[in-house]
Design a protein around this nucleic acid. Structure first.
Lengths: 334, 334
DNA sequence: GTGAAAGCGCTAACAA
DNA sequence: TTGTTAGCGCTTTCAC
C-alpha cells in the first residue's frame, strides 16, 4: 500500500508537507506543491480514510437518513438521493445510508462511532422522535421538512403552504370559483406529517380569503379508492371547475377518472398538481414543482456550512414554482 | 469521548481484553466478558470506526453502486436498497452509496482510500465497463446482473430466461396458442442490458419449442406510445389471447389500453407480468415476481462470504416464482 | 485466560 | 516555507 511517507520520500519532502498539499491548511510553495502532486499521481496515492478520520476527527462522510415507509413516493426519494450524493461529492464527501427503521439507535451508533460528520434527515414529521436524539448527539444536522419548533435546528423544505395558496391564486386568476382538493392518503395526515398539512392549510386559507367554494379529501393509493373519491367530489362540489391534487402516486388515475366521468381535462376541470415536474410534464398538467434536486443540493450546502462552523438560519423555505401547461391534453385510453 | 481504555479501566481489565470481548477473536471467561459488557453499556462506549479501520484494515462498510439512469424502475431500486441496508446491518455492516455516474474513478477512490471492504454493483450490463476496474482493484465484489463472462466474478440475478419461459409455460398449460410480448424501451435492449435480453430469449425459445404464435415489441414509457404499441400488437397478432409484459412502468397503461380496445382482461386477453409482486397484486395480474428483497439479501450474504475468505460460485440464479391471480379483475375507469 | 506494547497512516502543534 | 514528532483509538502479536 502506498502511504503518505512513500509520497513524501518520492517527492523529497516531509510527510506533513504532503498532508498540507492535500488539505490546503497551510501554504505550500508552488514548486513543491507541483512536485508533490506529481508524486501522488505517479504512485497512485489515496489517503487512508480511517487514518485520516482518526487523526483529524473528520470522516468526510455524511449520513443520509431515509424514510422508506408507506405514503412516500419512491421516485421522489431517489431523485433526492441522487442530488444529495452528487452535491456531497462536490464537497469531497461520501454518503452513508441510514434507513429510518434503524431509528434513534442507528443515529447514535454512527455518530458516536465517529462514522459520519453530520446528518441529513429526510421526511421529518411535525413531532419527530429523532429530533431530541439529534440534539443530544450534538452533531451537525439538516432536516428535510420541519417540526413545530425549529429553534436550534436547521431545516429546509419547499414552502408547501405557499404552494397550496399558489395553486388557488393561479386558478382564481383564471376565473375558477369552485375548486376541489385531493390530498395524500389519510394515514399521512394522521401521522402529523408537515408537508401534507401545510399544503392543505395554505389551500384552505387561500380559498377562504377569496370566498371560493371548496372541498378537500384524502386519497388512498388504490385505483378503486381514486374512482370513489372522484365520484364523491363531483357529487359534493357539483359546480367544481378546477382541482388541486397533492398526491403524485394517484395523479394519473385522477385524470383518468375525471375523463371516465365525462369531464374533459383541462376544459371542464382544470387540474393543478403539486408533484415532480417530470410527472406533470408527462401528463401535460399545470403544476407546482416538487424540487427534489434543489432541496437535496441545498441541504448538503447547509450541512457543509454547519461543518465549517457557520450557523445558518433555522428554516429555509423554497418558494413554490408554478409551471402553466396549457398545451393539448394527452388523451389515449379512458 | 469514551475510549477502549476508559472501558478497560472501568472493568479492571486490559484494553486488549475489551477488544476481544467485542470481536470474539479469542476466548474470554464468561465472568470478565460480563463485566466488560456492563462497563460498555454503562459508559455508552462505541468503538471509533476510523481507529478500528486503521488497526484492522477492515471498515465494516460496503459500497452500494447504484445505476439511476433511464429505464431503471426507481421503486424497484429502492426496495433493493432497503433490503441491502437491512441485511448489511445484520452483519454489522454499514452502506456507502456510490452512484454509477462517479464511474470507475469513484470505485477506485473508495477502494484505495480504504473506505469500504467490498462492493455491491447493481444493474450490471452484458459488457460492463466497471468489471475490469473491479478486477484490477481486487476488492471483493458481488454483481447484480451478470456479464457475458462470469469467470472469477460473483454474480446474482433472477433467472430472467427461465422467467420468460415460465410465463409461456403457464399460458400454454391454460391453452393459449397466440401470445404477445411487450418489453422494455428500445434503448434498454440497445444498451445490451442482460435482464431484458435474457427474458426475451427465454420467451422466444419457449414459444418456438411449443409452436406458439407470438410477436414481441419494445415499449417506451409514454402513454401514447403504449397506446400505439398495443394497437400494433392487436393488429399483428389478431388471434392473441395472452400477453407477457416485462415493463413495470407501463403495465397499468397496457391493461388500460387493452380494455379501451374492447378486450376484457383477463377474459379475452390473459396478461402475465414480470414485475414486483406489489404492483401485480394491485392490478390483480398473474406475475413472475421481481424479488428485489431476496436479491439484495442474497447479494449481501455472498459478499460477506467473500469477505470471510470463501469463494462462492460465480453465478447464482434465483428460480422464477409465478403467482397466479385469477380473482376478479379490478375495473374502474377505462 | 489475560496483559503489555508496538504499530496502523495520518494530522497538527511545535520548531526552525 | 518546511521539517520533526507526538499522538488519534484500536487491534494484534508476543509474553505470561
Amino acid at each position: 500500500m502506498v502511504t503518505i511517507v512513500d509520497v513524501a520520500k518520492h517527492a523529497g519532502v516531509a510527510p506533513s508537507t504532503v498532508s498540507y498539499v492535500l488539505t490546503g491548511k497551510r501554504p505550500v510553495s508552488a514548486e513543491t506543491r507541483l512536485r508533490v502532486r506529481e508524486s501522488i499521481r505517479l504512485l497512485g496515492y489515496h489517503p487512508h480514510a480511517g487514518a485520516r478520520a482518526l487523526a483529524s476527527s473528520r470522516t468526510n462522510v455524511l449520513a443520509l437518513v431515509l424514510p422508506l415507509r408507506e405514503g412516500v413516493h419512491l421516485p421522489v426519494v431517489m431523485r433526492f438521493v441522487t442530488s444529495v450524493v452528487t452535491a456531497a461529492r462536490e464537497h469531497d464527501m461520501d454518503v452513508l445510508l441510514v434507513t429510518a427503521d434503524q431509528g434513534a439507535a442507528g443515529l447514535r451508533r454512527v455518530a458516536v462511532g465517529a462514522r459520519v460528520d453530520g446528518f441529513l434527515v429526510m421526511d421529518v414529521g411535525l413531532d419527530d422522535e429523532r429530533i431530541p436524539v439529534l440534539r443530544e448527539l450534538g452533531r451537525p444536522a439538516v432536516l428535510l421538512g420541519y417540526p413545530a419548533a425549529v429553534k436550534g435546528l436547521t431545516c429546509v423544505d419547499l414552502d408547501f403552504g405557499a404552494a397550496g395558496a399558489r395553486c388557488v391564486d393561479h386558478l382564481a386568476e383564471l376565473g375558477h370559483r369552485s375548486i376541489g382538493f385531493l390530498g395524500a392518503p389519510g394515514v399521512v395526515y394522521a401521522r402529523n406529517t408537515g408537508f401534507a398539512q401545510r399544503t392543505l392549510a395554505g389551500f384552505s386559507a387561500a380559498v377562504m380569503r377569496r370566498g371560493i367554494a371548496s372541498t378537500a379529501l384524502p386519497v388512498e393509493q388504490r385505483r378503486d379508492a381514486v374512482h370513489a373519491v372522484v365520484a364523491t367530489l363531483l357529487r359534493e362540489l357539483p359546480r367544481m371547475t378546477a382541482l388541486v391534487v397533492h398526491n403524485e402516486a394517484v395523479l394519473g388515475w385522477v385524470v383518468d377518472c375525471l375523463r371516465a366521468a365525462g369531464r374533459r381535462v383541462p376544459d371542464d376541470v382544470a387540474v393543478v398538481a403539486i408533484c415532480p415536474d417530470e410527472l406533470a410534464e408527462q401528463l401535460r398538467l399545470t403544476s407546482v414543482e416538487l424540487p427534489s434536486e434543489v432541496l437535496g443540493r441545498r441541504a448538503v450546502e447547509l450541512l457543509m456550512a454547519k461543518l465549517n462552523g457557520q450557523q445558518p438560519p433555522p428554516l429555509t423555505l423554497l418558494p413554490p414554482n408554478l409551471s402553466s401547461r396549457t398545451g393539448f391534453a394527452a388523451s389515449a385510453a379512458g
